[in-house]
Structure formats: structure tokens, C-alpha cells
């Protein structure tokens, strides 16, 4: 199994753990992640307006590059995945927009959203399989009560992302179970941490982040896992008093390959 891999800017800097454990685990699970050459930042957040072209070009380039290799495009950062998937959807469904983009790019062939876009979690569930994963677990995380934090980017808009039921998702809970731990379901797991509002209104980010952590704790979570560097940042910065870690870190731990990413 070979996939094109789009790491994203944060995974090369502040979120090296997310990237490192993702690659190591994939390798062990027989999924080869080929980093796209010369990828550019996805922009962090999708611009919904239909007349925004330039902000979506980096995603289209990554998608087109992947198409040329005949692979699916995998990313692990929630934001990158969201932006790329929404851009791909716009290229599929909004003809006028796709036309503008294709003229701008002036490549030999047009791109119309042909590439399959997967989040790393979907790769685990649909390509590797949670059952296969379970067999490879050497260090089951028994007794750990873990709250999966989806945030908004992984699930919404559901008509485009389509990863899971947007109001009652199970993909991360199923992962937690496969790793031998106990998932804790809490309602705020698909609510926003505040995201980029940390710049504009730190109080709002604090309020949102606290609502997530408090709800997870009240329902019995002893740890929160996430796929998003900004979620992790907001939750920790605003005083989370239980560990908030990347899901890939937990994955690597259960697979028995956890090392210090910064070594």
C-alpha cells in the first residue's frame, strides 16, 4: 500500500510528534507514505467563497501531483485534510471554479477532483483495517480512559468530509478500542476549540477549550487525543489539566515504537 503524503507546515515544526509517529506507525502497518515533493502550505483553513482561487492552488497542486502517481492522498493534520478535501470537492462540483483554476494553472491536463483524499484515520480504518491494527498492538493500553477529540475540521461539512457520522462519530473511539484502551464519549467532542480565534479573542478560545476539556473530564476521560495541532495548542494553553496528545503518539505507544520524535 503506497500513499501520497501531505504533512503540512505545522507537522514540520511545532507538531513533529504528530508527523513522526504517523510515519513510523504507517511503516509498521505496511502503509508506505510518500511525501509529495515541493508541497506548499494548505492555508490552514478553507475559504468557502467560490471566487477565491489563489488560496486553493496549493491544494490543487498536491492533488494533481497525487493523481499523476495514481495514489490516494493522505494527511494527518485535521486542517490540511479539511482544506484539501474541500478544495477537491469544489474541483469536482463547481465547474466554473474548476475552470478558473485550470486556466490559472495552465498545466497540460485539467484536474477535476479525481484524487481520493483520505485522512490518516480513514487510511487506518478503511485501508489497513482496525482488526489488522489490533493484531499488531504489542502494548495494549489497558485501563486508559481516553476521550477522542474530533473538533470541527475532521467532520464538517459532513456532505464533503463524509468520514463519519458528524454528530456521533466512532472512528477515533474504534481506534482507541483497537489500541486496547477505553473510549469515553462526550458531547463536546465535535465542538470547536476556538481555532484561529485565539488571535482575535483569546477569551473565546479559552471558553471553548474549557468547555471541551471540562465535558471530557466530567464524562470520565483521563486523557484527550486529537489530530489537530491547533486543537492541542488551544486545549493545553487554556489550562487542560489532563494530558492532551496526538492520536499518533498513542498509536505508536501501543505498537511499541514510541521514541522521542525530536531525537
Amino acid at each position: 500500500m503506497k500513499f501520497s503524503y501531505f504533512p503540512g507546515c505545522t507537522l514540520k515544526n511545532k507538531a513533529k510528534d504528530l508527523d513522526f509517529y504517523a510515519r513510523r506507525s504507517a511503516e509498521l502497518l505496511g502503509a508506505e507514505l510518500e511525501e509529495i515533493e515541493n508541497w506548499q502550505c494548505c492555508g490552514g483553513v478553507f475559504t468557502t467563497s467560490r471566487d477565491e482561487v489563489a488560496t486553493k492552488l496549493s491544494s490543487v497542486r498536491a492533488l494533481k501531483d497525487t493523481q499523476a502517481k495514481g495514489q490516494a492522498l493522505v494527511s494527518v493534520c485535521s486542517a490540511c485534510h479539511n482544506v484539501i478535501k474541500q478544495t477537491n470537492h469544489a474541483m469536482q462540483t463547481d465547474k466554473a471554479f474548476a475552470d478558473k483554476v485550470n486556466r490559472y494553472m495552465a498545466e497540460e491536463s485539467d484536474y477535476n477532483g479525481e484524487t481520493e483524499v483520505l485522512h490518516y484515520l480513514e487510511m487506518l480504518r478503511d485501508k489497513v483495517g482496525f482488526d489488522t491494527l489490533k493484531e499488531k498492538v504489542v502494548n495494549p493500553l489497558k485501563g486508559k480512559k481516553i476521550g477522542a477529540y474530533y473538533g470541527c475540521l475532521l467532520l464538517r461539512p459532513n456532505t464533503v468530509m463524509g468520514m463519519d457520522d458528524p454528530e456521533n462519530p466512532t472512528i477515533m473511539e474504534d481506534l482507541i478500542k483497537a489500541l486496547g484502551a477505553t473510549p469515553v464519549v462526550y458531547a463536546n467532542r465535535n465542538e470547536c476549540c476556538g481555532g484561529y480565534i485565539a488571535v482575535e479573542s483569546p477569551e473565546l478560545a479559552k471558553k471553548r477549550s474549557n468547555a471541551v476539556v471540562e465535558n471530557a473530564k466530567a464524562q470520565g476521560a483521563e486523557m484527550i487525543i486529537t489530530a489537530c495541532p491547533l486543537c492541542k495548542y488551544n486545549l493545553i494553553k487554556n489550562g487542560a489539566d489532563i494530558p492532551v496528545v496526538y492520536f499518533t503518539e498513542l498509536l505508536a505507544e501501543a505498537l511499541g515504537i514510541k521514541e522521542d520524535a525530536n531525537e
Partner: peptide, 10 residues
Amino acid sequence: ETPQQLLVSA
């Protein structure tokens, strides 16, 4: 700890 993602998104 500010992630690049925060600034880019903002």
C-alpha cells in the same frame, strides 16, 4: 508553542 497553523489560518 504557537503552531504555524494558527497564524496561517488567522
